[in-house]
């Protein structure tokens, strides 16, 4: 392999084969990929969960993770929160001419490690190279497929009195990326990037009345909760004092002019569950390493139809709207 990826690697010829044979196949280590057909033939069952996601994060490497780990966890989580057991992923790479091969090595190593941790296999993929200036170093798309184990999870199942549970601290990932991007500040802050299929499984196997699960990625906890009740006759009442936020995230957000409730999370989930089962679910979540800080943060109410309203730590009230565009750091 050369030191940098050139346009040749995307041509489908010898160099492409070299890339696949020396860098991709040995890492992903499974017979479905090694067969190298156009598509992967997989053993199947009746209902499948299928998801896709593209990853364009900048910078590629940030405290607590990188684009590779994200690309696996993101798709695994999307399947898991639908009640699916994620099994197989595809991986499409779009590389910019001039990308250092060593960088690609690191990213692939992260993907492989993340896949192993999540118990999934990357079984098919594609690689393209675009001219310098036509792609921002590296874009990844992963699609994933899994078997539906727990049907019926949907925001429509939410009922008055249900409890809202957050699996851990809010805003870690978004803040870590903003810090890394600003380049000027360092700290102990890390992305929370993690696969949640184990945690989802633990929650759903309790037999509790789980209405819906979702991972609050772009737009953060506030946006996802709004999605749950948009257009509904029900709303959500949150308690600010119950929402776990790391002090370093709080501090960084204050400096950057961000709000942790609107920062992305890549290793957390929101769970709406029947009132009587809330304590049981929280206890089960806390047994998992990804759910150590799980807590009930609010209640579903008929009082604010379609809205999310939070009681602040001072006892006041504040409406949390959906994030309109990207969160911009504020000066004033």
């Amino acid at each position: 392999m050369d030191e940098i990826i050139t346009l040749d690697y995307g041509s489908g010829g010898k160099k492409t084969s070299a890339l696949i044979d020396t860098m991709i196949v040995p890492r992903m280590k499974n017979p479905y990929l090694s067969a190298l057909g156009d598509g992967a033939i997989l053993p199947g069952e009746k209902d499948l969960v299928f998801s896709t996601d593209s990853f364009v994060v900048d910078p590629l490497f940030f405290p607590g993770g990188d684009i590779g780990e994200l690309s696996v966890c993101g798709t695994v989580n999307d399947i898991a929160v639908c009640g699916g057991e994620p099994k197989f992923l595809s991986c499409a790479l779009i590389l910019e001419e001039g990308l250092e091969t060593a960088v690609l090595e690191k990213v692939l190593a992260s993907m492989s490690a993340a896949a192993e941790r999540a118990g999934v296999q990357i079984v098919t993929g594609d690689t393209k190279v675009v001219e310098r200036g036509r792609g921002d170093k590296l874009y990844i798309n992963t699609s994933g497929i899994g078997f539906l184990r727990f049907p019926g999870l949907t925001p429509k199942a939410i009922r008055e009195g249900d409890k809202v549970i957050l699996s851990g601290t809010a805003g870690d990932h978004g803040t870590a990326v903003m810090l890394a991007r600003s380049g000027m500040m360092q700290g102990e802050l890390k992305s929370d990037c993690a696969s949640l299929n184990g945690l989802c499984s633990a929650i759903l196997q309790t037999g509790a009345g789980v209405r819906v699960l979702r991972d609050p990625t772009r737009g953060g906890v506030a946006t996802t909760l709004n999605e749950f009740v948009e257009g509904s006759t029900l709303g959500i009442a949150l308690d600010e004092t119950a929402i776990p936020v790391r002090p370093e995230v709080e501090a960084a957000c204050e400096m950057l002019g961000l709000d942790p409730l609107y920062c992305a999370n890549e290793g957390k989930l929101l769970c709406v569950v029947a009132q009587e089962d809330a304590d049981l679910v929280v206890r089960e979540m806390q047994k998992c390493s990804e759910g150590q800080n799980a807590a009930v943060i609010g209640t579903v109410t008929a009082r604010y139809p379609g809205r999310v309203v939070m009681k602040t730590k001072f006892g006041g009230s504040r409406v949390l709207q959906k994030l309109a565009g990207a969160q911009l750091p504020r000066i004033c």
């Binding site: 709000d259 006892g315 009230s317 504040r318």
Partner: peptide, 17 residues
């Protein structure tokens, strides 16, 4: 008359108190 005050007031929900 201060943007930071406006934000702080909104964030803490003071008006409702």
């Amino acid at each position: 008359v201060c943007g930071t005050h406006t934000m702080a007031i909104a964030k803490s929900g003071i008006k409702s108190m």
